[in-house]
Every structure is written in C-alpha cells, then in structure tokens.
Amino acid sequence: MTTLLATERIKLFTTRSPWWSIVAALGLTIGFAGLVALNHSEGRPLQVEHSQFGIQFGLVVVLVMAALAVTTEYRFSTIRATFQAVPNRSAVLVAKTAVVAVLAAVIGEIAAFGSWTVTRVIAGGPEMAIATGADVRMVAGVGLVYALAAVIAVAVGTLVRQSAGAISILLIWPLLVENLVQLIPGAGPHIHDWMPFVNAERFLNPPEFTTPPIGPWGSLAYLAGVAAALFAAAMVAVNRRDA
C-alpha cells in the first residue's frame, strides 16, 4: 500500500492541475478573508467565524481538483496504464482517494488557519482568539470537510469518468440543488436538513447560528457517511467495468 500511495502521490504532483488548485484555493480563501478584514467597520469587532467566510471557495476548488485527479486519467487513458501496473483496482482507488483526501485536508487547514491569521493580523481583537471548542471546530474542522468533499469528488469522478460532467454535477449540486430544495413547500426544509453539503456547512457554523437536528459532529458523521456510500459505489463500478 505504501508503494501505491507513493505512486499516486507522484502521479498527482507531476501534473499541473493540483498546483493550480492549491494556489487558487489558498489565494481565494485567504484573499477573501483579507478583503473582509480590510473592510470591517470599527464598531463591529470580527469574530472567529468571520475569518472563514471564504472557505466555500476552497471547497469548490477542492471538489474540482479531486474530480480531475480521476477524470484526467480517463481522458488521457492513463487509467489503463495504471490498471496494467496494478491490477488490483480497489487498491488503486483507495490509494488515489487517500492521497487526494490528504492533500485536500492539508489545503483546508492551511486555508482556514491562513484566513484566521490574516484576519487577526489586519483586524484582530480579543474576539479573534480561538478559545472555545466551537472555535477550534470552525477553523480546524475545515480540513476534515475538505477531505470528505475530496472523497465525494473522487467517487463522482470515477462514476462519471468525464471532466465536464463530473465538475458540472459537483458544482451544481452543492451550490444550487441543495439550496433550491428548501423552497419546496412542506417537505423542502426537511429534505434540506439531510443534504450532505448543508451538513458540511453546519459542522463549520458557529453554535448560535443553526440548530441542526443532529448537532455539528453528527453533521460531520453524516457527511462522512455520504462520502463512504459514494465511494463504495465507485469501488463497485471500477471493479465491474471494463477499464
């Protein structure tokens, strides 16, 4: 497995898209935090959660990067070379997912703590200290959410096999579908409660903001469950399909 992980790490970092993604994700999140901090009004001191406004930018970049990590293999047929070198397809998928998820987590932590640091330096008051458990969750939790999002994106990429299709689904789903469902009269808000990325957001929200039915850690567990289910589906597909 260590060999496979090393292989996937080499594959990922010898193409350009992860580098672009790292720069874009960090630039957008930390840059946005800087924008927010620079423009805040003196009367209203910034809180920890205000430093994390741009975190969704990084999330979508991670989704795109993780999906591309698989779909480009199909696009350039390197997936065949991969399966030729390592016929155990499940192991390949596990290794690839692990590498992408770890990278996503690292991006998440740097983005979150970077945003927090920038905000603190520009406009920090005593409210910016990471004091409570909720504060830790809001900042350090970003890496966890990014990692799970990456797992979801790798799974969708594996199932769809096409960059354009996978990216469209992965962006339209969290940005549009999950929002619009709550408009359905009656059932809408209840469906909304069980949308994976809504739960991701709830995990990262300050406690006073939302009252999720299952609490922040329950939300994270739910997101992990969705990721696991999609990953299992991708696993089955990869093993049954012709490469």
Binding site: V36, N39, Q56, L171
Partner: peptide
C-alpha cells in the same frame, strides 16, 4: 478547456456573486 471553463462559470455565477456581499461595508 472544458473543465476550467465550466468550473469558472459555475463558481462565479453560484458562489462569487453571492459571497461578495459578505464583505463588510462595500460588499
């Protein structure tokens, strides 16, 4: 590039324009 163009368009339309309003004062 398909992937780049689609990502740029969707993220801009669905995310950037909304998040901008979170910037205090000028947003």
């Amino acid at each position: 590039h398909s992937a780049g163009a689609i990502a740029l368009l969707l993220v801009y339309v669905q995310l950037v324009e909304n998040l901008v309003s979170l910037i205090p004062r000028i947003g």
